[in-house]
């Protein structure tokens, strides 16, 4: 990449400090300007960046510039630690109901990756010897049901559908009955993509939620999302009470600042990341990796750890 990395920039900004003393407010301000630009370039929401920078400033002022590290790296470490903390310390798993079936409701904007991710989840459950069922509640998008059927077959997971003439709320109800009768212990509901400001479709989701009382309501978010991620996440959470987030398309090179934005406004954990179009491409979320990705650092951290 042609860009100078954040740690290089910080290194330059703080070069005079090398190996001595503590960071004073002026040094920190200088460094934070670079951090702020990096976070904005990574699509972290403007307001989230502001708050984050203020928090980090407080911690950084007065902290020792360790001898083994150059000051720039010290600041990177502080920023990275705080970011990781904010993103949730550990990976967060699916909550299974104590009285199965466990119901998982997928939701999100158009094209985020709900249908693909639903199939990926179902396949991972199957590998855990569970008996998942996929449910086709997207009656709007052309060939959405067919798509779910195709990926369901690949995952070797049954798909419950009633065509596109029945109301999604009724489909959800019938699917629950069907699942109980057939001994399915996890039921995953695929829903149509919708805008958070589409009142009718958001009401439909609320109704589905009310009849199913799902264990998990997972918001699927495209990692390329920009500043609007906060509006989307906030509204979905307000209306539905999401229980977690799945970040898709991380096999791309987007820095994924949306992860931080969403975490900051909803305080809900990121449960999985999707890393490709194939059904195996679903991984648990690692807050530390996400933090260095957003900061655009990669290997620098491993260097710091070794130092």
């Amino acid at each position: 990449m042609a860009f100078e990395s954040l740690s290089e920039k910080l290194q330059n900004a703080l070069s005079k400090l090398k190996g001595k003393g503590k960071l004073n407010e002026k040094d920190v301000d200088l460094a934070m300007r670079e951090v702020k630009l990096a976070l904005l370039e990574a699509d972290v929401n403007f307001k989230v960046v502001k708050n984050f920078i203020n928090d980090v400033k407080k911690r950084a002022v007065g902290s020792e510039v360790m001898n083994s590290l150059t000051p720039g790296q010290q600041v990177v470490k502080i920023v990275n630690d705080e970011l990781t903390k904010l993103m949730g310390e550990r990976e967060s798993k699916i909550n299974f109901s104590s009285s199965p079936p466990t119901i998982i409701l997928m939701c999100g904007l158009q094209g985020a990756g709900k249908t693909t991710t639903a199939a990926k989840l179902s396949m991972s459950f199957k590998k855990q010897n569970r008996r998942p069922l996929l449910v086709a509640c997207d009656i709007y998008r052309p060939a959405a049901i067919k798509q779910l059927e195709v990926v369901g077959e690949k995952a070797q997971v049954p798909v419950f559908s009633m065509g596109d003439k029945i109301n999604p709320v009724d489909i959800a109800k019938a699917a629950l009955e069907h699942g109980k009768k057939n001994g399915n212990d996890v039921i995953i509901i695929d829903t149509a993509g919708r805008l958070h400001i589409d009142e009718d479709l958001m009401a439909e989701l609320e109704n589905i939620k009310n009849v199913l009382n799902p264990e998990e309501v997972l918001l699927v978010v495209d990692s390329m999302t920009g500043q609007d991620a906060v509006n989307v996440a906030e509204t979905f959470d307000e209306k539905l009470g999401i229980t977690g987030v799945i970040l898709t398309k991380l096999d791309g090179d987007a820095r994924g600042g949306a992860a931080l934005s969403i975490r900051a406004v909803t305080n809900k954990p990121i449960k999985f990341v999707a890393m490709g179009e194939k059904l195996e491409d679903l991984e648990p979320f690692h807050p530390d990796r996400m933090a260095s990705r957003i900061l655009g650092m990669g290997d620098v951290l491993t260097l710091i750890e070794k130092a």
Partner: peptide, 11 residues
């Protein structure tokens, strides 16, 4: 290009 996309759209 999806209007929701952030800076990755440039790349």
């Amino acid at each position: 290009v999806d209007a929701t996309t952030g800076q990755n759209a440039l790349i």
